[in-house]
């Protein structure tokens, strides 16, 4: 589905839950398959794009696509139960029906990453929209320089996709920290910027930073990266605002000049920097 103007922006496609995986307390990954895949055009998405997931009678939520973009057999969405719609979504089971509109929005700048070192910084559920980036980078590993993924979460229980880390670690540097340890945790404790501060950044002017997580986390991660010499023009972040239409027609998701559903959710730091720290914007 493309934004040709011929597609009705409110037309949903029917989808079904194939499987559900519990990632963390209140966080589920839904594997979705389109009904009638033969009748519909093949679904392709760019890492960082999102879908509107629709529960008839309840409403819609904008959820980033968290699966491998090269796998067209199913679509993964990692959902945290924080509101009505997301609560319904996380309570779904195999066979549950829902609607999908998408893919929507602008994704990560992978086309600008050839030959670059890549720094991915994720906080909490913010790892979900970065996981397709990890998949895409791994699929073409030879095209990129050093790749680091820094992951932060509140507690060890909140860490996503732990089952996949060992596979990732064969090809990229994965570092993890939590704000609060529990009994079984032997890893790093502290905010994610502490990982960044001790990371060797050997080619800062050739490094691309992509980050997603709480805004304050992204702000300090970006500041730390800039302090290490990463260029501000090579910094990208994924922002979240209330999205209702998902196609730039309803006005909800503004951040200054940005209509984040249309111009984002992934935006270049330079474009939004003047607005990120403005209170209540």
């Amino acid at each position: 589905m493309t934004a040709t103007g011929m597609v009705h922006p409110w037309q949903c496609r029917n989808a079904r839950v194939r499987s559900v995986h519990c990632e963390a307390p209140d966080v589920m990954t839904l594997e979705l398959v389109m009904d009638d895949p033969a009748a519909a055009p093949p679904y392709r998405f760019e890492p960082g794009q999102f879908n509107m997931l629709y529960v008839p009678g309840v409403g819609e939520a904008a959820i980033s696509i968290s699966g491998d973009p090269s796998d067209t057999s199913s679509l993964l969405h990692t959902v945290r139960a924080v509101g009505n719609v997301t609560r319904f979504l996380t309570n779904m089971t195999a066979g549950s029906c829902l609607g999908i509109r998408g893919p929507l929005g602008v994704g990560w700048p992978l086309s600008q990453c050839d030959g670059k070192d890549i720094l991915l910084v994720a906080g909490g559920i913010g790892l979900a929209p970065l996981r397709p980036v990890v998949s895409a980078l791994l699929a073409d590993r030879h095209r990129y320089g050093h790749i680091s993924l820094l992951v932060g979460a509140r507690t060890p229980k909140d860490l996503l996709y732990r089952r996949e880390w060992s596979a990732w670690q064969k090809d990229i540097d994965v570092q993890v920290t939590v704000d609060r340890a529990d009994d079984g945790w032997n890893g790093h404790v502290g905010v994610v910027t502490t990982l960044l501060d001790r990371l060797p950044v050997s080619r800062p002017e050739q490094t691309v930073l992509m980050t997603c997580g709480p805004e304050v986390m992204m702000w300090y991660s970006i500041r730390a990266a800039l302090d290490r010499g990463v260029r501000s023009s090579a910094v990208w972040l994924s922002l979240e605002r209330h999205m209702n239409c998902g196609v730039g027609l309803c006005g909800h998701c503004q951040l200054g000049p940005e209509l984040l559903c249309r111009d984002g959710p992934v935006v270049p730091f330079d474009r939004v920097a003047p607005f990120l720290k403005v209170d209540s914007l």
Binding site: W10, C12, Y54
Partner: peptide, 17 residues
């Protein structure tokens, strides 16, 4: 009304505009 969803007898939602 920009869209509708109607549940058919087999439980499937017909989502139309």
């Amino acid at each position: 009304t920009v869209a509708r969803a109607d549940r058919s007898s087999d439980g499937r939602w017909e989502m139309t505009t």
